[in-house]
């Protein structure tokens, strides 16, 4: 089990995704291990999120805590299930050599990075959840925290994809070499979320990958909406799921408007 956490650590440090470590066209990490680690960390964040329900006005709800701890890991992996087929198809369409297993590894690694950031922000979320009575504030704080970790995870995904396509280049093929990124110059080992100097992806490939990231983000947000409640409105009794209505973006906008109302 310690080895699995060490795998995650190598991902975060960028060791597992160093350009020379990707020569074989895949990330050398154990997928079951990362699955386990990311589920544990997501559940930890779920507990932090659900702790609002434990201390809210009008009686604690331990079930909400359990529900959140189950739902957060489910959120990530259901998003994976929904997006993976289209990711794989578009990936094959643009002529990338990544096989389904390599691709799955990549996405699981990105989820692990996301969840690691999420769990590290857990203490702050738990602190605010326990100390605050404002439901909307906790809701928005959670949205911000998830957006931050999602953003970092997707940056990891994009940059690792770039590195993987660079690794592929050793087998040849036409490339369009872009100017060297100034900020990355002079550093032999780029970090996990930095672009490697000298972008070598063709424009359509980059566009497709950007679309991917966008799709993943939007599906994730809406998946969170479908799985709600995560925090638990103190004015409503506990339910596992809420009725189908509205969408994520509309709801965040409303929460923002009513924060001080």
């Amino acid at each position: 089990m310690i080895r699995w956490f060490a795998d995650l650590d190598r991902l975060l440090r960028g060791e597992a995704t160093r350009p020379d470590a990707l020569r074989r066209g895949t990330i050398e990490v154990s997928v079951p291990g990362l699955l386990f680690v990311s589920i544990v960390l997501a559940a930890v964040y779920g507990v932090c999120m659900g702790s609002y329900a434990l201390f809210r006005e009008g009686g604690p709800s331990g079930t909400q805590l359990v529900a959140s701890a189950v739902k957060v890991p489910a959120l990530f992996y259901l998003t994976l299930v929904v997006t993976f087929p289209s990711l794989y198809v578009s990936n094959a369409l643009v002529g990338s050599r990544l096989g389904p297993i390599a691709l799955l590894r990549l996405v699981v690694a990105a989820i692990a990075v996301m969840v690691a950031v999420l769990a590290s922000l857990g203490p702050i979320v738990a602190f605010f959840s326990v100390m605050t009575t404002s439901y909307r504030f906790v809701l928005l704080l959670n949205v911000v925290v998830c957006a931050v970790s999602g953003g970092l995870g997707l940056r990891f995904l994009l940059n690792t994809l770039q590195r993987l396509s660079m690794a592929e280049l050793h087998t040849g093929g036409p490339v369009e070499v872009e100017p060297i990124d100034e900020s990355a110059a002079g550093r032999p080992a780029p970090s996990a979320i930095e672009p490697v100097k000298g972008q070598v992806m063709t424009r359509p490939v980059r566009l497709i990958f950007r679309c991917w990231v966008f799709l993943f983000g939007v599906v994730g947000a809406q998946m969170a909406w479908v799985l709600r409640p995560f925090v638990g409105d103190p004015n409503q009794p506990f339910t596992w799921f809420r009725p189908r209505q509205s969408n994520f973006f509309e709801a965040v906008w409303h929460s923002l408007l009513n924060l001080f109302g």
């Binding site: 975060l12 440090r13 990075v113 950031v117 590290s120 203490p123 990891f156 080992a189 970090s191 979320i193």
Partner: peptide, 13 residues
């Protein structure tokens, strides 16, 4: 904790 993870991610561990 979050500061630690972000430091690691940007390569400053």
């Amino acid at each position: 904790p979050s500061f630690f993870v972000v430091n690691t991610l940007v390569g400053l561990r």
